[in-house]
Amino acid sequence: MTKLLEANNLGKRFGQQTAVSDINIHLSRGDVLGFLGPNGAGKSTTMKMLSGNLAPTHGQILINGIDLLEQPKQAKAHIGYLPETPPLYRELTVREFLVFCGRLNLLAGKPLRIAVDKVIERCGLGDVQHRLIGQLSKGFQQRVGIAQAIVHHPAVVILDEPTSGLDPIQIRDIRHLIREVANEHSVILSTHILPEVQMLCDRVQIIAHGELLFSDSIDALSKQMHASSLQVQLAHAPSVRELSAIAGVVSVQTISDSTFRLHYQPDNDPTERLVSLAVAKGWQLRQLVAEQHSLEDVFMKIVQREEISKDA
């Protein structure tokens, strides 16, 4: 598979302080890579380095096989970058601005017009294309920011916290747009919102304190999320003893008169036995939820595990 973006041993020091150390990032065609970390972990610094806005202290970045540090001009033509604050000229209309961005990225004439028309349509900016950017809502400004990053059809699109500071509906729209963008481009997305990664990305890299802690597919992350407990609600609840007698159940926790949490061994799932028993004995099953660790839990676990191993 061709690597569209390859960063090896990337590191950045500000004076004495190490912001990012020895990070490796690989992005193949069609990948959506989630770059996850708490605030101050070095996400934005890494994004800036990948987009050529900040020179790394050491390491190498290849965009489409072109060295970003040695041939920045050629390499940058393959990148679309949306920083944390969308870089917009508020006094221009959406269309004027996108035409300017297209020209900045060496488009001209008819291809420019086609590219701008297409990006306006893709980002749903048709109704506002003749309005001033300064008058648009934040959600639309963010759309213009994304449009700006993809107008020249780059191979790699780098989005730095694209949903921060938006309301829930705007977040949903922007996520929808990002998924649409991912159909045609490889995307790197940085965020501190975990469900976002789960929804949008194929692969995840978790970074904390400038170090890469986790790098795998989203499925591998989900596996880590698998917990071993069930939450059941029964209208005619039996005694706790009866529930704990079910094969595989390790312990029972009473939440309310009718609601219980059953812990079980991961390799011995009692769900089926519980359901058939409930039918046979007329417990009247109302609710059965396989509990999952939230991504937050997993994330905290990964970050904490690293901290413990560092102390040891």
Binding site: K48, G52, P72, A77, P87, L104, Q148
Partner: peptide, 11 residues
């Protein structure tokens, strides 16, 4: 306005 990255990340 933090719009400088627009120019610096362009070719």
């Amino acid at each position: 306005n933090e719009s400088l990255p627009l120019l610096t990340s362009a070719p």
